[in-house]
Structures are given as C-alpha cells and as structure tokens.
Simulated scan of single mutants.
Amino acid sequence: MTNPILAAGAVLWRRSAEVEIAVVHRPRYRDWTLPKGKLDEGESLYAAAVREVAEETGFRCALGRSLGHVSYAVDGVPKTVDYFAARVVDGEFTANDEVDRLRWLTLPAAAERLTYDHDRSVLAGFAETGPETATVLLVRHGHAGRRDRWPGPDDERPLSKTGRGEAKALAHLIPLFAPDRVHSAPKARCVQTVRRVAEQLNVDVRLEATLLESADRTDAVDRLREIVGDGGTAVVCSQGGVIPDLVSDLAKDSSVDVGEVRSRKGSLWLLSFAGDTMIGALYIRQA
C-alpha cells in the first residue's frame, strides 16, 4: 500500500492599504495556488510550512493560527495538506523552477485567481477572522525526573536529560511562530524549558505565580487573558495540573471544540484569539 503524501503550506499575508494574499503560479501544472509542499523525511508540519513558503515565494514568514487541512488524491495516492496563516517578515520573490509568478492580491481577488476549490476553502477560513489575531504557545514543562528522587525543594527540581532534549526541540519549533515574549510559572523546570527561547529573543522570562498548580483556577484564566490582550505572540510555560483546565475553560467560553485536552510533558497548545475570544486550538506533541 502506498503511503499517503503529507504536505504543509500557508496563507501568506501582508498588510498594505489592505490585507493582501500571496498566490503563486506553477508552470508545470499551469495553476494558481497557495504556497505548499511535501514534508521532508523527519520534518514537522510547521517547519515544512515555513520552508516551503521560503522556497516558493522567497519570503521568510512567521506562522500564526492553524487553518486546518485539506485532503485529495494525486494519481490515486491520498494527500493531506495542513495550512497555517503566515505573516510576511521579509524577503523578495524571485522566479524559480517551481514557481514562475507571484501575485499579491486582496482576499476577493485571490479567491477568484486560485485554481482549486480546496484552496479557496482554506482562504475562506482565513478570511473569517482576518490576520490580526493574538497567539499563545502554551507549553508544558519537560521531564524533570521523579519527585521522590530529588533531595531539594520541589520548586528547584530541574529538567532531566530527557527534559533538556525536549527544551532543545522546543527551541527549534517555537521560533517558527516568531514569539515576542516569554512567561513561565516560577518552577525551575518550567523556566528551564523556555529559557533557551527567551535567550534567542533576548528577553527575560516573566515569572507568573498565577500559573502554578497551587494557584486559583479563575486567576490563571484571567492572567492568560491579560497576556492575550497584550497582542502578538506569547510563550507561556506551566504545569500539567494547570494546562488542561486553562484550555478547557477558554474553549468553553469561546465555544471551540478542542476534544480531549492532552498535556504531555514537552508539548504545547497553539491557541489563537480574535480579541479575547479563542478561535482555534491545536495540540502539538513532539516526537
């Protein structure tokens, strides 16, 4: 049996007088489409989306919210493409072997230019709330060994070798979303999980006592909403006894179906907001 094709892409956007979307022309297929491409071996959806945007358009981008996926067959082989909103950071288009033309178009014009209905459905999902959304990358700290084997105070229990590997992997993943600040519950294992990201951004880790398991649940939700209200993209690291309640409460308030709220160590939730309303939640578990 042939393995399904996995791919990732983006609705690449910029704001000029109004929001403009990049659509690309592929001479091989004689079509106009959204930038996308197959995952390399061992590559994540998120890294593939950023790489494919760069390769096809010449632009470096910052990922935003998940726009879901589309599935169709290519020569009888099933193919699934996961899409994300992606803001232009910098770059310049140069024609290449895959793409010979790029057009920046308004949302209505882009929908009219696109060749495929499945691309138009992705664009329609993007257009529902537009690009100006806030993002929270809600991280559970990495592995820190067994509590009963740590001789010191639990607040000071550090990441284990496995946890340090998870923190390193997060430091590769999280920058794809171009965060601008880092928050953490004041536990050593939480701070260590996101310290490398903070160093990459050249910012301090802001300590958040309301995100501890011992804190009040309502206070934790209120504080997260304050972080959302600051706009942009924030990294927030907390504990396994906090994250499921936070995600569940935000989802309930916003009528977003998140299914089973998982929170594996070293994983994160990509939470997207329009104003103070959560409009999307994607669980990202690293291998």
Results as ranks from 00 to 15, higher is better:
Asp154Glu: 14
Asp100Gly: 12
Leu207Lys: 05
Asp117Phe: 02
Ile5Thr: 04
Ser238Asp: 06
Leu6Ser: 14
Phe59Lys: 05
Thr57Asp: 00
Asp219Met: 11
Thr115Arg: 07
Leu123Pro: 05
Leu138Trp: 01
Asp253Phe: 01
Leu123Ile: 02
Gly64Phe: 03
Asp31Lys: 15
Val11Lys: 03
Tyr46Ala: 12
Glu166Pro: 07
Cys61Ile: 12
Val81Glu: 13
Gly130Arg: 02
Leu173Pro: 10
Asn202Asp: 15
Pro153Tyr: 14
Val74Arg: 15
Glu20Phe: 08
Ser66Arg: 11
Asp31Phe: 03
Tyr83Leu: 07
Pro158Ile: 04
Val197Trp: 01
Glu166Tyr: 05
Arg28Leu: 13
Val74Asn: 09
Ser160Cys: 06
Leu39Ser: 08
Asp148Pro: 11
Glu55Trp: 10
Thr218Gln: 15
Gly76Gln: 06
Ser263Phe: 02
Trp104His: 01
Arg262Lys: 11
Glu41Cys: 06
Pro35Thr: 00
Glu98Ala: 14
Val50Pro: 06
Glu208Val: 14
Gly231Cys: 12
Glu56Gly: 02
Ala274Met: 09
Val203Thr: 08
Gln200Asp: 11
Arg147Phe: 09
Asp82Ile: 09
Lys265Phe: 00
Ser248Met: 10
Thr94Gly: 14
Ala73Tyr: 12
Arg101Leu: 14
Gly42Ala: 13
Val88Met: 07
Asp154Lys: 12
Ala111Tyr: 03
Asp97Pro: 03
Pro78Gly: 09
Gly266Leu: 07
Lys187Val: 00
Ala287Ser: 14
Cys237Glu: 07
Gly165Ala: 14
Gln286His: 13
Asp155Tyr: 12
Gly259Met: 00
Gln286Tyr: 07
Asp155Phe: 12
Val11Asp: 00
Ala110Glu: 03
Val247Arg: 03
Thr162His: 08
Cys190His: 02
Glu260Thr: 12
Lys252Ser: 10
Val19Pro: 11
Val74Leu: 12
Ser263Met: 04
Asp222Glu: 09
Pro186Arg: 01
Leu34Gly: 08
Phe126Asp: 02
Arg157Lys: 08
Asp219Leu: 15
Ser272Ala: 14
Leu107Cys: 10
Val256Ile: 11
Arg26Asn: 13
Pro175Asp: 10
Phe273Ala: 08
Ala209Thr: 15
Arg15Ala: 11
Arg262Met: 04
Thr2Ala: 08
Gly142Val: 00
Ala281Met: 02
Ser121Glu: 13
Pro131Thr: 04
Val99Ile: 13
Thr210Asp: 14
Arg146Ile: 06
Arg264Cys: 01
Gln192Thr: 09
Glu52Tyr: 10
